[in-house]
Design a protein around this nucleic acid. Structure first.
Lengths: 168, 168
DNA sequence: TTGTCTGCAAACACTTTGCACTTTT
DNA sequence: AAAAGTGCAAAGTGTTTGCAGACAA
């Protein structure tokens, strides 16, 4: 998965680094701060891109230190990071894609059917609609996910021969 | 998957029945109108509920006539129905959920994290937002998908012991 | 007849789990 | 030392595919 090069949502000031926040989360649950968990949080928060379990695992294996965590550990840790509120998970085309949640503002996505890039945007109006709809249905809204699919600016102006290239 | 009992979006007038529309689609592609494809379209359009491949397959097996289509055929036909514009597919919690598209107005969903019901709603404003955002990003929007997750009215007013029951 | 479709079994992709050993506390 | 975590291999889901026989046109 990919993030738009022109990503421009601001970073929100937070008290703790993701690593610290995760450590806190683990401590309150009597879980341990292991080498693998540390490696994973650090890696995940060193880039802002959207990613899936496979990409994370591959990235970890590429580091000079070699393999740092097994596949099951990656999956287990991603689940914990979601529980800790550090990552958000979304289902895209059958697999789970993760993105930073902690310290980043709520936003939604434009998804290019051609190059599969994910572009972030945020809309205050959308939150209004969300509340209005929820009220109408006596529903307690906890979160939402909007994905607008179509063709991105780049793919619209590119030859068809290069249209189906995934942008990293 | 489930549909709210209070579903109230109107049916849109269409020229052809889904069956006819599908036959037309198949003909223009030199595909054949088989017993299985007919059985599936008929079954799918005889209920408005959201469903997944497994449910459809199970329903088909329940008919007095016995098994009417195999699992691979169900998957293949669902893909064709999506291509034909008769069904819409969405990824929910890791699996594909389908709903009627042909003859029904565009809408979005409220998803109850407790009983997993899907409630439909539509919002004209949302389409405005979609266009505005797309324009800002020079993106050509083709479709969108908004899911608001939370707790439905029924689960909010129900004892916790019955909260995690899936509503059919 | 011709070529598509079906069903079967097997393969797939992604994710989770049981268990013996390792590591953190 | 005690308890939790890790990696391995295996098992699960949900979905797709190769192929021989069945069927629509």
């Amino acid at each position: 998965m990919a993030t738009a090069a022109d990503f421009s949502l601001g970073k929100v000031a937070v008290a703790l680094t993701p690593q610290e926040r995760f450590a806190e989360f683990l401590q309150t649950r009597a879980k341990r701060i292991t080498r693998q968990r540390q490696t994973i949080v650090e890696h995940v928060f060193s880039h802002h891109e959207h990613f899936d379990a496979d990409q994370l695992l591959a990235d970890l294996h590429k580091t000079p230190e070699g393999i740092r965590a097994s596949r099951p550990t990656v999956y287990r840790t991603l689940t914990e990071l979601v529980d800790a509120g550090l990552l958000k998970k979304m289902d895209l085309a059958g697999r789970a894609v993760y993105e930073h949640d902690y310290g980043y503002p709520q936003h939604d996505h434009l998804y290019c059917n051609s190059c599969h890039i994910l572009i972030e945007f945020s809309s205050a109006e959308l939150n209004r609609i969300r509340e209005a709809v929820a009220n109408q249905h006596h529903f307690r809204a906890q979160s939402h996910r909007l994905i607008i699919s179509g063709v991105c600016a780049r793919c619209r102006s590119t030859r068809s021969k290069s249209r189906h290239q995934d942008r990293v």
